[in-house]
Amino acid sequence: MAIRSPSSSIFRPKNGVDQSVMEENKKLIADINRRNLLRGTVSLGALTMLTGCSVSDTGAMQAFLRAVSSFNDGVQALLFTNRLAPTFREDQVVKPPRFNAFYEIEDVKPVDGQKWKLELSGLIENKTAWTAEQIYKLPEQEIIVRHICVEGWDYIGQWSGVPLSDFLKRIGADTKAKYISFKCADDYTETLDMATALHPQTILATKYARDPIADPFGFPLRLRTSTKLGFKNAKWITAMEVTNTFQETYWSKQGFNWFAGI
C-alpha cells in the first residue's frame, strides 16, 4: 500500500486511520465489491441501451422536437378563438381544489399577505405596485370551469377575482403587446399570449369557492384561465410584465409545449 503524503488537515488522525475493522471484515467487503462490480457493469450496459433509446431528450433530436413544438404553438394560436369554455354548477365544484406544483404540498412556503405586493413592469403606464388589500377590493368575476392537467387528470373548480383584461385596462397596459409574463414567490415563471390574457374567462383569482384562496393553491394571487392546461395558471404571483419579448417558462424550458391551449 502506498503511503500518501501526510495531509495538514486538522481532521486527519495523527496516527493514521484505524484499519482493524477493515481487516476483520475483509472477506465480506471483497464479496460485496465483487457483486457490486458485476451489478454495476450490467447497469452500465443497460444505461447505455437506455441512452440509445432516449436520444429524444438531448442533441439534434431534441432540437427537432422542440422546433415541432414551437410550430404547434403557432397552430394552436390559430385554433384559439374567444369562445367560452363550458361552465358548471356550484354543486359540481371539488373542495378543496387538487394541489399541484413542481414540489409536494408539504413544501409550500405560504406568502405573507400583509407584506406581499404585485410588482408591475414592461409596457404598462402605471407601474405602481399593488397590495393584496387593493386587489381584493376590485370588482370580481366568478368562473366555474374544468381544470385539465397535462398529466391527464381534471376537476371542476370555482374561482373568482378581477378579470385580467379589466386589470390590464386599469393599469394602462399595452394590450397590443404579445406576452404577459409572471414571476411567482416560488421562482416559478409563466408566460401567456395576449389573446389568452384578454379572454373573458381569464382572471387574476383571489378566491376559491367564495373564500380567499388557501396557501397551497396560490394565496394571495394566482392566474386562472379556462383555455389553458393547468400548469399555465401561475400561483403565488409576485410580478407581472407586459412585453414583446418571449420568455421561456419553468416548464417550457424542460420541454413542455409553451402554448398549452385546450
Partner: peptide
C-alpha cells in the same frame, strides 16, 4: 421519451 414531456413532444 425519457420523461412525459418527451413523450408529448414525440406524440405531437
Amino acid at each position: 421519451g425519457v420523461y412525459a414531456q418527451h413523450g408529448l413532444q414525440i406524440h405531437f
